Simulated assay, not measured.
Amino acid sequence: MGVLSLMLLVVSLYAVADDKSPAVEWTAPACGWIYDGLTNKSDQERVAYPVPPIDRGAQRHRIAIEGKLKNLNGVRQPHTLVVNGNPLPLYTDDDGRFVRPYAFGSGSNSVALISSTGERLQSVQFYDANTEKTPARIRLIMGWDDPGAEVDMHIITPDGQHAFFADPVLSNGGGLDVDGVDGPGPEIFTMAAPLHGTYLVYVNYWGNLTEEGYNFNAQTNRNDMITTQITLVLNENTINEKRENFIVPLRTIGELQLVKTFRY
């Protein structure tokens, strides 16, 4: 088998257990070549999420991570979705279905699902063949463990620009690729040609989300303390890739925390 065939091979790792053990069925992405951005035309059906993310212009080339977790049998949530090595909390609906948006880079990508009990259920690899994408030199991915909370990521770049939900696209080339508005993320900041200097990364517990809409009632969140996970990736998918993970607890609506100061 050639190297290319190996790159396109789907890697399926099922827990050795009976038919009643948790298992996952992937709907998307599928193994093989993906040409997102090259074939997405206005007359084609668009991906619909349970609560559509607000597209403010920076969210291009999104791919849905979609599937169904079977045989939950009361297994607690959240589970863990691992995208290119980046862990994200994952909740399902009552039937075990899930759909999350993600901004993948070009080249080889992987998605895996780990149950809340620690079982690695299944993983899939695919190759994004969209050569229009410029590799990310800075990527920040954030998720959190409360689907009833709305948490925002704020990035200050060396020239003083501020990327957040109200101003996602910066003139220096940085911006939010995915701004998750239906909990629990992800939110993704990407910069392909970073300015040299100091970057500041903040998280803000903005409010809560219920069936009636957004609110600032502290009683409507699911968890007393929200655990936010942030991953910083520098020079993604190169031999110089560096990765850091941060866990940030949030307790009060309106709370703003400085997560990381770094230089590029």
Rank of each mutant, 00 (worst) to 15 (best):
V11H: 15
L195W: 05
V82F: 08
D93Q: 13
G67D: 00
P249H: 03
Q122P: 05
K68E: 02
F262A: 01
K242R: 13
N208Q: 11
P52L: 14
W206Q: 03
P53S: 07
P249D: 10
Y205D: 11
I155D: 08
R46K: 07
T134K: 13
P52M: 11
A112G: 09
N237A: 05
Q77V: 04
H162P: 04
F104R: 00
F165G: 06
T92H: 15
V178L: 03
P249L: 09
M7N: 03
E236A: 15
K133H: 11
W33E: 12
T261W: 12
I138T: 08
P87G: 00
R243L: 09
D36E: 09
E236C: 14
N221M: 10
A15G: 06
L234Q: 05
G32V: 06
G254F: 10
T117I: 07
R137A: 07
P184T: 14
T92G: 12
I114S: 10
I34T: 04
L258W: 12
V124A: 08
L234G: 09
N71P: 06
G2A: 08
E212Q: 09
L8Y: 10
P22Q: 10
Y202I: 09
D179M: 15
L6C: 15
V124D: 00
D167V: 00
A17I: 13
L234V: 07
V203M: 05
S115A: 01
N240T: 15
G32S: 13
E244V: 04
A103I: 01
G74L: 11
D95E: 14
L256C: 11
G207W: 11
Y102N: 12
G105M: 11
V248A: 11
V24T: 03
Q59D: 05
F165P: 01
L13Q: 15
H162S: 10
E211C: 15
A58P: 13
T231F: 02
N240P: 09
A58Q: 08
W26Y: 01
L195H: 10
Y49D: 07
V16D: 08
D94N: 10
W206C: 04
T27L: 15
F126I: 02
H196S: 07
W144H: 00
G175I: 00
W206A: 11
H196T: 13
G57E: 02
Y199I: 02
N221Y: 15
V201S: 07
V11A: 10
Q229C: 08
F189N: 00
P147A: 01
D152A: 02
H61N: 03
Q59G: 02
P89V: 14
L258Q: 06
L258A: 11
K68T: 02
T252P: 05
A163T: 00
Y49P: 05
T157G: 04
D95H: 13
V16A: 13
L88V: 02
D179A: 06
D177Y: 09
G37W: 06
T131P: 05
V75S: 02
T227W: 06
